[in-house]
C-alpha cells in the first residue's frame, strides 16, 4: 500500500511539473518550426538580412524567458514534490490508521484465540472428561466469541474516531441512553446491580450516534462490573448551555487519584479489570471528537465510588 502511495506521489509531482513547464516546450517547438518555415521562404540577400534582424529581435526575449524559467526548474521541481506530498498526506494518515487498527486487532484477538484453540485441544485430550468439564469448556468458548466480537466493535469505533470520520446527525441522547440502559440491564441483574436512569426524553444533539452510544456504554459497563452486588449505578443526562452532560456514578471501590490519568490511557488495566484496556481511552477520544471532555471524580466518599462526567457539544 505504501509503495502505491509513493508511486502516486511521483506521478502527481511529475504531472504538475510538466503542466507548469508546458508553455516552455510549446515556445521551443513553435520557435523551431517558425525558424524552419521562414528559412525556406528566403528569396534574396535583403530577405536574409531582414530575417536575421527579426530573429535577433524575437529571439532575445525568448532566450531570456527560457533562461529564467530554466533557472527556476529545480525550485519548481521541489515545489511539485512538496505539493504532491501535501495532497497525499490524508491518504498516508488513513493508511497509518488502517495499519494500526490491523496491528491492534491482531494483538487484541490473540489471547481469546489462544483460549479457543487451547480449550478444544485440552478438552479433546482430557483423560477423564465429565459433563461439568465440557460445560465449562463450552462456556469458555461462548465467552471468548463474545469477547472477540466486542473487541472488533470497539476497535472499529476507535478507528473511526481516530480517522475523524464521524457521521454527526441530529440525535436524541435521552432516547439513546434509555435504549442503552435497557440493553445493559441483564448484565446488571446478573451482578445484582440496579441501574437508575435520570435522562429526560428530549436531549437533541448533533453527534455520531454509534460512537457516542459506545462511549456511554463503555462507562456504564465499567460501572456495573466494578459495583458490588446490591449496589446501584446512576446514569443521568441533562442539557447545560450548548452541551449535553452525561454523568455515570457507581458505588464500586473507587479509583485512586494516582490512576486518574492512567485509566484513560490505551491498554492500561486495573488489577480487577478483564476488559481490553481501551474502553476509557475511547470514551475520551469520542467526547473530544464531539468538542467535549470526560472528567473523573473518585473516590466520592470513604467507601469509594466513582463518577464520570461526559460532555458532548449539542
Amino acid at each position: 500500500m505504501r509503495d502505491l502511495v509513493v508511486s502516486l506521489r511521483f506521478r502527481l509531482a511529475a504531472t504538475s511539473f510538466a503542466t507548469a513547464y508546458a508553455p516552455i516546450f510549446v515556445l521551443l517547438v513553435s520557435g523551431a518550426v517558425f525558424s524552419y518555415s521562414v528559412d525556406s521562404d528566403v528569396i534574396d540577400s535583403s530577405d536574409q538580412t531582414t530575417l536575421e534582424a527579426v530573429r535577433v529581435e524575437a529571439g532575445l526575449p525568448l532566450i531570456a524567458v527560457l533562461i529564467v524559467m530554466g533557472g527556476f526548474a529545480p525550485f519548481a521541481a521541489w515545489f511539485a514534490w512538496w505539493w504532491s506530498g501535501r495532497v497525499i498526506r490524508p491518504l498516508n494518515e488513513a493508511i497509518t490508521i488502517q495499519e494500526r487498527l490491523l496491528e491492534e486487532t491482531s494483538h487484541e484477538l490473540r489471547t481469546p484465540l489462544a483460549v479457543l484453540s487451547t480449550n478444544s485441544e485440552v478438552l479433546l485430550a482430557h483423560p477423564d472428561p465429565t459433563l461439568e468439564v465440557y460445560r465449562q469448556g463450552l462456556e469458555r468458548t461462548g465467552a471468548m466469541t463474545q469477547r472477540m466480537t466486542d473487541t472488533i466493535d470497539t476497535l472499529l469505533v476507535d478507528a473511526r474516531g481516530r480517522a475523524r470520520s464521524l457521521n454527526k446527525i441530529p440525535v436524541d441522547l435521552g432516547t439513546v441512553i434509555n435504549r442503552l440502559v435497557d440493553s445493559l440491564t441483564p448484565l446488571a441483574d446478573g451482578g445484582g446491580v440496579t441501574i437508575l436512569v435520570d435522562a429526560a426524553g428530549n436531549l437533541p444533539a448533533r453527534v455520531d450516534e454509534l460512537s457516542v452510544e459506545r462511549a456511554i456504554s463503555n462507562v456504564v459497563t465499567n460501572a456495573i462490573e466494578h459495583s458490588p452486588a446490591g449496589g446501584s449505578v446512576t446514569v443521568s443526562a441533562q442539557r447545560a448551555d450548548s452541551y449535553i452532560a452525561v454523568t455515570v456514578t457507581d458505588e464500586g471501590p473507587g479509583i485512586s487519584p494516582d490512576n486518574h490519568n492512567k485509566v484513560f490511557e490505551r491498554y492500561w488495566q486495573s488489577d480487577s479489570s478483564t476488559g481490553s484496556g481501551i474502553g476509557l481511552a475511547i470514551v475520551r477520544q469520542v467526547t473530544e471528537a464531539h468538542g467535549g471532555t470526560v472528567v473523573l471524580r473518585s473516590p466520592l466518599s470513604e467507601l469509594g465510588g466513582a463518577s464520570f462526567l461526559l460532555t458532548f457539544k449539542a
Binding site: 483460549v115 487451547t118 485440552v122 485430550a125 469458555r140 478483564t274
Partner: peptide, 15 residues
C-alpha cells in the same frame, strides 16, 4: 493475567 487462558492452560498442564 487472563483468567480464561490461565484456567484452560492450568487444566491442560495438570492433565
Amino acid at each position: 493475567d487472563d483468567p480464561d487462558l490461565a484456567d484452560v492452560l492450568e487444566l491442560g498442564l495438570q492433565n
